[in-house]
């Protein structure tokens, strides 16, 4: 009897995540088409499917959004294994494992402060507040590395219009969960926990500002800021607050975590700017993850056309 040995498959021969996802997109597209053909009468199958709640589960109903870059997307493996998430660890390779202890359900986001309609949103209702879009953004870390990430979410302005800020509201503050039971990193006072970040109201209302629930078409892995984070592609990564539990509208500039830790190094605005160096290193160049040579950093991370008008007349060396 001839027993055939199964072929060894090298990992390099396995379909990459992006190709795999393209296949999914193709299938999703086909499904949408089929749904359109069968419109009227046939119950939608996905309605009965359980809510996607865990990192890696596919998010339904994602449409292609605007502002997409066609640069090569950073592999899923790198986006989910190289994370600055100090609530878990200050080492970038550790959150991938440590963030498993984060429970993303039940989860609520309190929206409060100077708004007409303050409300505590359950995460699943927040997910359905608007159509989910895929936005392929550049991501530039203040440390000098960058990625290209296909995020999934909707413009934060959609949520702002729901709660209706008062005329006195000028700023928005975001707060990350601060639970030592789930987040080993907050047991050490590396930063003044909880992590807070902030924006001017016009920045928050900018369509680029993305309230984000997923990446690569799937629910955000915990280490990338599940279940909900903000993504601000024209600012350094640390401005994009992760695992948000509270959003507060204020009349004063909110204190932000990194600014409190080192005010001369991390300003409130922290717009990506190759002409303004970090006091300890240059910001003129960056290393795109996966590339060997450094590339020049672009003003506002390449979103100058979209955002520059918000800072017209401001001395960006002073308001770094």
């Amino acid at each position: 009897m001839l027993i055939k040995k199964t072929a060894d498959i090298r990992s390099s021969q396995v379909t990459s995540k992006s190709l795999y996802l393209d296949r999914r997109k193709f299938l999703a597209g086909a499904a949408t088409l089929a749904g359109a053909v069968a419109v009227g009468g046939v119950a939608c199958v996905s309605a009965a499917a359980p809510e996607p709640t865990q990192g890696g589960q596919k998010l339904p109903g994602v449409v292609k959004g605007q502002f997409n870059t066609d640069e090569k997307q950073t592999p899923y493996k790198d986006i989910t294994n190289y994370n600055n998430f100090y609530e878990f660890a200050t080492d970038k390779y550790e959150p991938a494992a440590l963030a498993k202890s984060l429970r993303t359900r039940p989860w609520t986001v309190k929206v409060e402060g100077m708004v007409q309609k303050p409300k505590t949103y359950d995460i699943d209702s927040l997910l359905k507040l608007a159509t989910l879009e895929e936005r392929v953004y550049r991501h530039r870390c203040v440390e000098g590395w960058s990625m290209v990430i296909p995020w999934v979410g909707y413009s934060f302005s959609k949520l702002i219009s729901q709660v209706q800020p008062l005329g006195s509201a000028k700023y928005v503050e975001f707060t990350t969960l601060n639970d030592p039971a789930q987040m080993p990193g907050v047991r050490y006072r590396v930063l003044d926990w909880p992590y807070t970040e902030g924006l001017r109201l016009d920045e928050a209302n900018h369509p680029l500002a993305l309230l984000t629930f997923g990446l690569y078409g799937e629910v955000l892995p915990n280490q990338d800021g599940a279940p909900v984070r903000i993504v601000l592609p024209w600012k350094y990564g640390f401005k994009s607050c992760k695992s948000i539990v509270r959003i507060r509208f204020m009349d004063k500039e909110p204190a932000t975590a990194w600014n409190k830790a080192a005010p001369n190094e991390y300003g409130f605005y922290s717009n990506v700017n190759p002409n303004v160096d970090h006091p300890r290193w240059s910001q003129a160049k960056e290393r795109r993850i996966g590339e060997f040579f450094k590339r020049p950093t672009l003003m506002f991370n390449g979103y100058r056309d979209q955002v520059a008008s918000m800072y017209a007349g401001m001395d960006l060396k002073k308001y770094y």
């Binding site: 493996k77 790198d78 294994n81 190289y82 970038k92 390779y93 590395w145 290393r287 993850i289 996966g290 060997f292």
Partner: peptide, 9 residues
């Protein structure tokens, strides 16, 4: 190829 996302770092 086991040096992670940022081998040079």
């Amino acid at each position: 190829h086991m040096l992670g996302a940022n081998p040079i770092e």
